[in-house]
Simulated assay, not measured.
Amino acid sequence: MPELLSRRRLDQPRRQGRFRVSIDPEAFGRLSERLARFLGTGKFLFWQTLLVVVWITLNLAAASLRWDPYPFILLNLAFSTQAAYAAPLILLAQNRQDNRDRVSLEEDRARAARTKEDTEFLARELAALRLAVGEVATRDYLRSELDRLRTDLLDVRKPRKSRPAAESVRDDHRWADATSAGE
């Protein structure tokens, strides 16, 4: 089979052109958020107020620099343009924040559901352990039983005064044989 001259794969679509401009779809959203954050600061209000004061002062006082006479139509046009762009930028930033908040809320709900399920599982396991411990011999119970057995053994092994020592040794051997046979 002959080799393809262009070395392009046939199972992939052809590229649109030689120069491709890659645009980040979130770049405009990030820019609008930055602008919306800046528009809501005291720094912006200070510089805008300073600009308006200088604008009006120059147009009223300086006779040679009057580019916008008294009704200040150009200044009003600038404010209208600013408002026309600021409102949609602020709304776009709010929509993006709402989307982030929605995702965060869904993650919090899922985490809370998992925590609730884990807590319920642990509660069931704890209840099962309490029931199991209730059926298991405790340390105090075992200690009291061992003490009782020790006193019983001591009572059995004590030589009786009426019997001779040889009988006592013979009884001890019988007791040892009986206990080893019982195991």
Rank of each mutant, 00 (worst) to 15 (best):
S64Y: 12
R111W: 06
A36S: 13
N59T: 05
W47P: 00
Q12P: 00
D101G: 01
A27D: 09
W47F: 13
R8Y: 10
L35D: 02
E106D: 12
P88T: 12
T41N: 04
L58P: 02
I23T: 10
Y70A: 11
L50K: 02
L65Q: 07
T115N: 13
Q94I: 04
R14H: 04
L45K: 05
E26P: 01
R114C: 06
S104Q: 13
R114E: 15
I56K: 08
K43Y: 06
I90L: 07
R102F: 10
L65R: 10
Y85Q: 02
K43N: 02
D98C: 12
T115S: 14
F19S: 13
D108Y: 07
E33V: 04
R14L: 12
R111I: 03
Q48K: 04
F79W: 08
A84S: 13
L10W: 10
K43G: 10
S22A: 08
A93Q: 08
S104R: 13
E33I: 02
A61L: 15
I73Y: 00
N76T: 03
A113D: 06
P71D: 07
D98G: 10
I23P: 01
A62F: 12
G42W: 04
R9Y: 11
E26C: 02
W67C: 05
V53Y: 08
F28S: 01
A62R: 10
D98E: 14
W67I: 14
F46R: 11
R18L: 15
L31I: 15
P13F: 14
R100Y: 03
A83G: 09
P25V: 09
R114K: 15
D11I: 06
R109C: 03
V103N: 03
F46C: 02
A27G: 00
K43T: 12
V54C: 05
R66Y: 02
